[in-house]
Simulated scan of single mutants.
Amino acid sequence: MKSRIGYLIIGFLLLIESGYLLYGGITGDFSLSSSIALIFALSIMFLSLGYLQPQFRNKDERMKVIREKSMFYSYFIIMLYFLIFILLLGFNVISLTALATVQILASLVLITVFLLMVILSKIY
């Protein structure tokens, strides 16, 4: 997709959908599942891509640095997520299925990488 508006429209639609599913899960109309986190993470991803699209179009040194640094920082944050989940699941603080754990971790990874790109684009 080459249009900034396309990314923003898809991002807002996914954000509305995740809000609707969360509202339905809280009121009891739907079952509350961890796939809501993935839909929310996808909305964050599309909104971030909509913000970063004009900057990604220019394949300059600045965008290369932003990508490299965001992947570098996100690596350590993802390791922290893994450590927290290992501790919480190991000491039976939370009880999750394997599918729910993978969905939550995947959504955290998506949110972390793309929000770091937005933050680093403001810095650099």
Rank of each mutant, 00 (worst) to 15 (best):
I78K: 00
S35K: 05
Y51P: 08
D60K: 00
N92S: 14
M45Q: 12
S43G: 13
L80H: 01
S48T: 13
T97C: 02
I77W: 02
M79A: 13
Y23E: 13
Y23D: 06
L47G: 04
L42H: 04
F76R: 00
T97F: 00
A37W: 07
T27H: 07
Y73I: 11
V65P: 00
Y75W: 07
F76M: 02
L49Q: 10
L47Y: 00
I86A: 14
F82D: 05
F30R: 04
L83F: 04
G28T: 05
G28H: 02
L47M: 07
L47N: 08
I77F: 01
F85Y: 11
I39D: 02
V65H: 09
L89G: 10
L52F: 01
L38I: 12
T97G: 15
L88H: 03
Q53Y: 09
L49E: 15
S33L: 07
V65R: 13
E68D: 11
M79C: 12
S74F: 03
S33E: 14
F40A: 15
S31P: 09
F30C: 00
D60I: 01
S34E: 09
S35C: 01
I44Y: 01
K69R: 15
F30I: 03
L49P: 11
I86K: 08
R62K: 15
L52E: 01
L52H: 01
I66F: 00
L21Q: 11
G28I: 07
M71W: 02
S48H: 05
V65Y: 08
E61M: 03
L49G: 10
M79V: 12
L42M: 14
I26P: 03
E68H: 04
Y73M: 09
G25Q: 05
V93F: 13
I77M: 07
F56D: 13
L80W: 02
V93R: 13
P54A: 05
N92E: 14
D29Y: 13
I94R: 10
Y51S: 04
S43M: 08
Q53G: 03
L52D: 06
K69S: 12
S95H: 15
Y81F: 15
L88V: 08
T97I: 02
